[in-house]
Design a protein around this nucleic acid. Sequence first.
DNA 1: ATACAGCTTGAAGTTAACTCAAAGTCAAGA
DNA 2: TCTTGACTTTGAGTTAACTTCAAGCTGTAT
Lengths: 137, 137
Amino acid sequence: MTIKEVCKRFGISSDTLRYYERVGVIPEVHRTPGGIRDYSEEDIGWVETAVCFRSAGMPIELLTEYVRLYREGDCTIAARFALLKEARERILAERQKYDDALNKMSYKISVYERAMQTGKLDWDNGPCGCECQTEKE
Amino acid sequence: MTIKEVCKRFGISSDTLRYYERVGVIPEVHRTPGGIRDYSEEDIGWVETAVCFRSAGMPIELLTEYVRLYREGDCTIAARFALLKEARERILAERQKYDDALNKMSYKISVYERAMQTGKLDWDNGPCGCECQTEKE
DNA sequence: ATACAGCTTGAAGTTAACTCAAAGTCAAGA
DNA sequence: TCTTGACTTTGAGTTAACTTCAAGCTGTAT
């Protein structure tokens, strides 16, 4: 599969694909004798994983670390397992923030729905009744 | 409330708070006669909203646009309402990506749980059985 | 065989969102 | 009064993640 096809399939640019390979977000991609990238099913699998995790905010560095461990072989299975579990916690925590924001957003939208009738609204930052986290540590 | 207290309450730096005010993510904050920021309850409300929406990935530009409309008065209520609804759609779409990543992550973790027994694992990018989006438009 | 679109590389440039530094101001305590 | 420490502004610097550029290959169609 050519780089162009992979771009289209995942909705990212060929520059980004080459960048991912260069910095190690995915392992080296199979090439034609002329040196042109020819993505195997395995390569595609790595790209899919990278795109999926990147769009959930996983940093490049974490993905490269995973690939680095993967290339070291089976002796790093435990390390990769630990890394994945930590990554899952991160994504769960991030998603919670999205839920908080959705609650706040819904509150505001309901305030505006009422305001659309009266034509006036002074203050829309009141207590939203949701569980947005406002205190840290 | 001093800038320091607000920092602590929301877990962000004073530089960030001043930056938010400077670029218009929040309206101008109340000051003491000496010019020192003294956050009112209203100011805190704006900060809470900004922090909440920022941690759900809303860009600075969208927040400043909202504040800009707010300052223009009640004639922008409809515009703000539209902006909020669009923002909610964005957050919902983003959250879906987090759910996809969590599914993929769970699949990988289960593969590793099995691998931890056998001590070997060749390929962990197989079909994860989840609904990760791999085709675009 | 020659054009020409599309690929290659490494390096430099861009963008968003902070983050820091320098130099000055203010208020309270010794 | 002097010092200390927290505050101020302005403007420059940093970081992550691409993105663009320049200059040179590849490979297919005429």
